[in-house]
Amino acid sequence: MLSPTSQVLVRNKEIFEQGKWVFVNPPEADIFAALDNPDILGFHQFYDVFQQCPKNNKHLFSAHYPVVATALNKQGSNNEPFDGAVIYMPKSKEQAAFLIANMAACVKAGGNIYLVGENKSGIKSADKLFAKVSQRINKIDSARHCSLYCALIEDSHSFDVENFVQYKEIQVNNTQCKIAFLPGIFNAGALDPASKLLIENLPEKLSGKVLDFACGSGVIGCFAAKNNPEITLTLSDVSALAIYCSQLSLEANNLKGTVIASNGLAEVSHKFDTVLTNPPFHTGIKTDYSVTDKFIKEVKFALLPKGTLMLVANRFLPYPDIIKDSLPTLSTVAQTSKFNLYRVQK
């Protein structure tokens, strides 16, 4: 079943029947079949939805949409600007502004950018979000507790993703790392207290293969590698923004590591001596424990014999019981008033 936001778009499907369009971060792949236009392309910052889409040159998984060459077609025949773009409102208004700036550089002058979202998502700030690229903004529809806005792009715009990257020097104990952030990254621009608790309590010596699962900006993996340069580090995340920032963070600290896009552990093929994680419990604006629940149930298959899992989470989350069903040797290494750090050995 289509999400409420996609249902609103289908209510207005005549808008998208002609021309070349790009749909940004739809929550499901079915929207492309629901709209009868073969020239609708998909731009995805989340690997799980990208995987649901047909394996053709009409879908791109990336942190940002390339402005000059789309990279969807190796022959370069896909370089024309779009007639319009549709952006699904993300959780962060800063990410929405980032995507609007990106799409304004990809849509031709005289084209339109639509923003659709649930009313509780911040969509009502559409006028402010569009202010830098358009002064002609209209509300098109309101249904399913969602709203659809349209902005006319009258002029050409430029976009450089590097203008949106911020680097922060973060210090924990006696170690300092330079970490890259983009709008939409979890706790962008700062070290969240849960990750800080995990980093403060990393073992003095890590060796072998180490995985930073749900790596975000790569902060946990960078600190692990900075203090243990001999480890073989892998970082994984479902978010293209996280993949991009983690690569930049590794480069900024002269560290080596492999960064992979993965929906959970599906694309993680190796086994590890240590898995480190501050896992998510949100999907978009909704609370969602399913990703971490699935990870906890499957992580034993990603651990080498006597491998260790270190997981930090809010104290109210029921993870200990789930962990014990899979890996019974659980202990609480450290805690604050809000977070527990768990250690589990296979």
Rank of each mutant, 00 (worst) to 15 (best):
Ser3Arg: 03
Pro4Thr: 05
Ser6Ile: 01
Gln7Ala: 08
Val8Phe: 04
Phe16Gly: 03
Glu17Lys: 06
Gly19Thr: 04
Phe23Thr: 05
Asn25Cys: 11
Pro27Leu: 02
Pro27Thr: 05
Pro27Asp: 09
Ala33Arg: 13
Ala33Asn: 13
Asp39Lys: 09
Asp39Phe: 07
Ile40Thr: 09
His44Ile: 02
Pro54Ile: 12
Asn56Arg: 02
Asn57Glu: 13
Val68Ser: 12
Thr70Val: 08
Ala71Gln: 14
Leu72Thr: 13
Asn73Arg: 15
Lys74Thr: 15
Lys74Arg: 15
Asn78Cys: 11
Glu80Cys: 05
Asp83Thr: 10
Ala85Gly: 13
Ala85Cys: 12
Ala85Leu: 10
Ile87Phe: 02
Ile87Pro: 00
Lys91Trp: 04
Lys93Ser: 02
Glu94Gln: 14
Ala96Cys: 15
Ile100Asn: 03
Ala101Pro: 00
Asn102Ser: 05
Cys106Leu: 07
Cys106Met: 01
Val107Cys: 07
Gly110Gln: 12
Tyr114Val: 06
Leu115His: 11
Lys120Arg: 13
Ser121Asn: 12
Ser121Met: 05
Leu129Tyr: 01
Val133Phe: 02
Gln135Glu: 14
His145Tyr: 09
Cys146Ile: 12
Ile153Cys: 01
His157Ser: 11
Phe159Val: 02
Gln166Cys: 03
Gln166Ala: 04
Tyr167Trp: 08
Lys168Glu: 14
Val172Pro: 02
Thr175Arg: 02
Gln176Ser: 15
Lys178Pro: 01
Lys178Leu: 12
Ala180Gln: 05
Asn187His: 11
Ala188Thr: 08
Gly189Phe: 09
Gly189Asn: 07
Ser195Lys: 00
Leu197Pro: 08
Pro203Arg: 12
Ser207Asp: 10
Val210Cys: 14
Leu211Asp: 08
Phe213His: 14
Ser217Asp: 06
Cys222Val: 13
Ala224His: 08
Pro229Tyr: 07
Glu230Cys: 08
Thr232Lys: 12
Asp237Ala: 03
Val238Tyr: 04
Ser246Glu: 04
Leu248Val: 09
Ser249Asp: 07
Ala252Cys: 08
Asn253Gly: 06
Asn254Ala: 10
Gly257Arg: 02
Ala261Leu: 04
Val268Ile: 14
Asn278Gln: 08
Asn278Pro: 03
His282Asp: 09
Gly284Glu: 10
Ile285Glu: 11
Thr287Arg: 15
Val291Asn: 13
Phe295Leu: 10
Ile296Thr: 01
Ile296Trp: 01
Lys297Asp: 11
Phe301Gln: 10
Ala302Asn: 15
Leu303Gln: 06
Pro305Thr: 01
Pro305Met: 05
Asn314Phe: 08
Pro320Val: 08
Ile322Glu: 10
Ile323Gly: 04
Ile323Thr: 13
Ile323Leu: 15
Lys324Arg: 15
Leu330Ile: 11
Thr336Gly: 01
Ser337Gln: 10
Arg343Ile: 00
Gln345Ala: 14
